[in-house]
């Protein structure tokens, strides 16, 4: 695995910080070096929110993903695509929540993955799991961790009382993966 420099962005309530935390936690448990850096400030109140995640086999220098150096960007809504399209490194991956993002990206030097995340999440049980659908797609491409490694730390991040939500989240992760594999 090469180092992952990932940005997950969306609007407040789409769970972009949360799903990032889950990924970082799973990376840590898998023995990798990880960092998770959230955006903070007024833009979080009803606006866009994002986090930068580094996962590497080596010590992490800057925890900030530099412009044009993201190995992947997950854009959960339109403003996030506008803001972070340019951040994807040439040859990198851009995951677009096509349920609510209508426009097509301008870049032609990157891999673009359209995921109908809201719909797939609804099918899995709740639209709230759109973040997990996107994570499933990201894992299918990046191969940075296995789905099981994510689910194994679920209760560590969210608490034991959320164990009942694991099957739903497993479904969401899986449908995100299938969206990539069955194209």
């Amino acid at each position: 695995m090469t180092s992952q420099a990932l940005i997950i962005a969306g609007f407040g309530g789409q769970g972009v910080l949360t799903v990032g935390k889950l990924l970082a936690y799973a990376g840590m448990v898998a023995g990798k070096e990880v960092s998770w850096m959230p955006s903070y400030g007024p833009e979080m109140r009803g606006g866009t929110s994002n986090c930068h995640i580094m996962i590497s086999d080596e010590l992490i220098g800057s925890p900030v993903v530099a412009p044009h150096e993201a190995t992947s960007v997950i854009a959960m809504n339109g403003p996030s695509l506008d803001k972070f399209e340019d951040w994807v490194a040439p040859g990198g991956h851009l995951f677009i929540n096509s349920s609510i993002i209508e426009r097509k990206p301008k870049r032609s030097d990157i891999h673009i993955h359209y995921i109908d995340a809201n719909e797939l999440a609804k099918e899995a049980g709740t639209m709230k799991a759109a973040n997990m659908v996107m994570l499933g797609s990201y894992l299918a491409i990046s191969k940075v961790l296995m789905e099981k490694q994510i689910l194994d730390v679920f209760t560590k991040v969210f608490g034991e009382d959320k164990a009942k939500l694991i099957p739903l989240n497993e479904k969401a992760l899986n449908s995100g993966k299938c969206a990539i594999e069955n194209r």
């Binding site: 970082a24 070096e33 990880v34 992490i60």
Partner: peptide
């Protein structure tokens, strides 16, 4: 700084 304050690491 705000970055070290806000970020997460193992």
């Amino acid at each position: 700084d705000g970055l070290i304050g806000q970020m997460m690491e193992p």
